[in-house]
């Protein structure tokens, strides 16, 4: 579910924003670590050390087949975060130009774009992805590609309504009277005023995609079995909840905090960017 731009709380306490930014940096750092390696060993199975609670050798214990949970959580950062980031970028890249054109042209163009997005919005997206990803067997990246189109409408609606609100403001009409061309008005005059919306939408879309893709992995339909995707880890370690709860708690906490940080940063950036205007 999207939280909607119109419902953000008035102002967040700055301590929470700092924590959110710090956590976002941590996740970014983990992504780098998981690429570089740094002696990370997420895959080696040590059956003799399986199902262990935290020990000095394995800070978060081990999973069913004796893999180090900490190493897997660290490695999972990039696996879990990159897909949603790509989906969010893709969705915004489609939504913003469409919104600008729909708002500017109005009439039939607007009607077609909006009815299409209404229809997509009415679809229960998690069901659609489950059915498509499950039956067609395309796995994670097919699901991500489908998700882009399912996520576009919510951002598109917000961006269009902001663009539409700008369209009939006197400064836009003044630009028309000056003789500024339509592309110039769209990109030089309207687009900068959409910036707060775009940034906020980007982060909201990221959170929505993170939830959808990790849910899919959790259901066993996204990332392949044995992957370090946090959703997959959580599902596979669920039966360890009595022996080593950290094996599934750690990825759950990481997911909750990642989503929370992104939402908080989105709220904060939106308010900050809006605040710079009159």
């Amino acid at each position: 579910m999207s939280t909607g731009l119109q419902t953000r709380p008035a102002r967040q306490s700055s301590a929470l924003v700092v924590l959110a930014l710090a956590f976002a940096c941590l996740v970014a750092g983990l992504c780098v670590v998981s690429f570089v390696g740094l002696g990370l060993d997420p895959q080696t199975q040590r059956l003799l050390e399986a199902r262990q609670p935290p020990t000095p050798g394995h800070w978060l214990g081990t999973d069913l087949v004796g893999r180090d949970v900490l190493a897997r959580v660290v490695h999972g950062a990039s696996v879990t975060v990159i897909g949603p980031a790509a989906v969010a970028l893709g969705a915004v890249a489609i939504a913003v130009p469409l919104a600008l054109v729909a708002a500017e042209r109005g009439g039939v163009v607007d009607a077609v774009v909006m009815r299409t997005s209404d229809t997509l919005l009415a679809l229960p997206s998690i069901l659609v992805i489950i059915v498509i990803a499950g039956l067609f067997g395309g796995g994670y990246w097919l699901a991500a590609a489908v998700l882009v189109f399912l996520i576009v409408p919510s951002g598109l609606r917000i961006a269009r309504s902001v663009a539409l609100g700008q369209k009939n403001l006197p400064y836009q009409e003044a630009a028309r009277l000056i003789g500024a061309s339509t592309p110039r008005r769209m990109f030089v005059h309207t687009l900068p005023n959409l910036l707060p919306t775009i940034v906020a939408t980007l982060l909201l879309d990221f959170v929505a995609a993170l939830v959808a893709l990790s849910s899919l992995s959790f259901l066993g339909l996204g990332a392949p079995p044995g992957s370090t995707d946090w959703g997959t880890m959580l599902a596979e370690n669920l039966r360890l909840i009595e022996q080593n709860p950290w094996a599934c708690l750690a990825p759950a906490v990481m997911l909750v905090l990642t989503a929370y940080s992104a939402t908080t940063i989105g709220d904060w950036l939106h308010l900050r960017l809006e605040g710079r205007r009159g």
């Binding site: 939830v211 708690l249 906490v253 909750v256």
Partner: peptide, 11 residues
């Protein structure tokens, strides 16, 4: 509002 349901559910 932003957390995946299965993660909050697990907690």
């Amino acid at each position: 509002v932003s957390a995946p349901a299965f993660a909050t559910g697990l907690l």
